[in-house]
Each structure stands twice: as structure tokens, then as C-alpha cells.
Design a binder for these strands. Structure first.
Lengths: 126, 126
DNA sequence: CCGCATCCATTTTGATACTG
DNA sequence: CAGTATCAAAATGGATGCGG
């Protein structure tokens, strides 16, 4: 074989590699916060919505569905009077959550320094 | 004081907290890959573009500028014939990169399991 | 009232062409 | 080489509606 065509993309740096997709679900605007939020135990939909400032219900349910099909989050339906839907991390999700938590913690810890740098560079928000 | 208005948002879960902004720069579609990519040492613009499959020049320069104003990435200009611009992690960026690397590593490691789960749920890509 | 689907205005992203 | 300008496509969020 000539080895001319890379056969299977192997890392998240390849746009066609499955791990790229997973990374996009997880390292996304809301993914990190949703998963981190679920570390405290199973949460109701509206609790998540209220915990994660600025998220829309649409994005929340969209991301939850995505994470559910990835096997990172489990959706439980309690058929009670006002129907209760609860979301929880799977074992796989718990594992991931630890990594994300350390990321969020680091960001929280260093934000002041970063802010100071940003002031020096001339404030650009976004 | 009546405490009626939350004075200062304190975590990334508040949409107005500065750490939310930082998290968005870092835990974004491209931020994670760019920073991880820079772990190998300073890189030229076109190297980054070619290393990170699927990124557009626009998104690359936009994200690099953002990360630079955050003090995570440094932009160096060599005034040579064809002007050379190099990007490198700052010490702060290096610190962050370790966290992101462990995240990327985990995703790479677990992608097969996640794929299997997704098959069970009925494939939904995106 | 809770969870979510749908429609539409706004924002973000990407492909390509173009400049110093 | 290292970007910026331009325009089209997609993601996002808000409002709204609806079944349970």
C-alpha cells in the first residue's frame, strides 16, 4: 500500500474524527456548565435552567439530548402529577465531569489575573 | 442594605461574571484545540491552521486575538522578509493547557465507548 | 406549572477573495 | 505569509403554544 491516503482520522484535530464531535458537545458554550452543574447529583430541568445563568430552554434541552445520546447524561422521567424529568450523570459522565470541574476551577481562580491582562491590552470584551 | 441586587457575580454560572467570558473563550469549539496545539511550542499561523482540521482563517485569528488579550497566548512578530508571526503560550496559558490536554486525552480515550452508546440510542450526529 | 417543540429576529461561523 | 473584507449559511435565543 502506498500510504497515500490517511485511512482513519485519529485525533480531535481531524475534523472528521468522532472525538472531534464529542469534544464539540463537551467543550461548548453550555456543555461544560451543564455537566459541571450535574456533579451535585441529579437535577430537574428547571433547576438546571435557573442554575446556568443566561441559558435558554431551547439550548438546555438541545444540549441535554446531545449529552444523553453520548451516554454522558441520563434522562429519567417520573410519571408524577406535574411530570418530573430528572437528569443525572452516568458513570462515564462523572468521569468527564471531574476534568471539566478542574477546568472551571482553574478559570475561576485565574480570572482576576486574566482580567488584569485584558485591561493592559485595551479592553475587548465579547 | 436590602441585598435585593446581587452585587457581584462570582462564578461562571452567572452570565455576567467575567469568568464566564473566559470560559467561553477557552471551552469553545476552537479554543480548546488551539491551546492544546500550542503545547508543542510556538507555532506559526499557517501551521495552526493546517494542524486544526476544519478551522477557518477567520475563526483562527479571531480566537487567537481573544486568547492573546486574555494573556493566555502571546503573539510574536519577526520582521523578516516574508513577515513571520508566531504564537506561543504564556505561563498562564501553559497552566491552562495542562487541564485542556487532560480533557482532550480523556475524550480521545473514551470516544469508542461514547460511539457505542450513541449507536444504542439511535444515531444522532451534529 | 413543567418540559419542550416551533417560528422568527439576531448573532456567529465559514468559504472565498483580496491586500500589505 | 498573515491576515482582513465580504457575503451566505448556520447556530442561537426569545416568544409563544401546547400536552401532561
Amino acid at each position: 500500500m502506498t500510504r497515500s491516503e490517511a485511512s482513519a482520522p485519529r485525533s480531535a484535530f481531524d475534523s472528521d474524527c468522532p472525538s472531534r464531535t464529542v469534544l464539540n458537545h463537551v467543550a461548548s458554550r453550555w456543555g461544560t456548565l451543564i455537566i459541571t452543574c450535574l456533579r451535585g447529583g441529579p437535577q430537574r430541568f428547571y433547576v438546571l435552567r435557573d442554575s446556568i445563568g443566561g441559558i435558554s430552554e431551547k439550548m438546555l434541552s438541545q444540549n441535554l439530548r446531545l449529552l444523553a445520546t453520548d451516554g454522558l447524561v441520563e434522562r429519567r422521567v417520573e410519571p408524577s402529577s406535574p411530570p418530573q424529568v430528572t437528569y443525572a450523570l452516568t458513570p462515564l459522565g462523572e468521569e468527564l465531569a471531574e476534568h471539566l470541574q478542574s477546568l472551571v476551577d482553574w478559570v475561576t481562580l485565574r480570572t482576576d489575573e486574566i482580567l488584569a491582562t485584558r485591561a493592559r491590552h485595551g479592553v475587548g470584551d465579547s
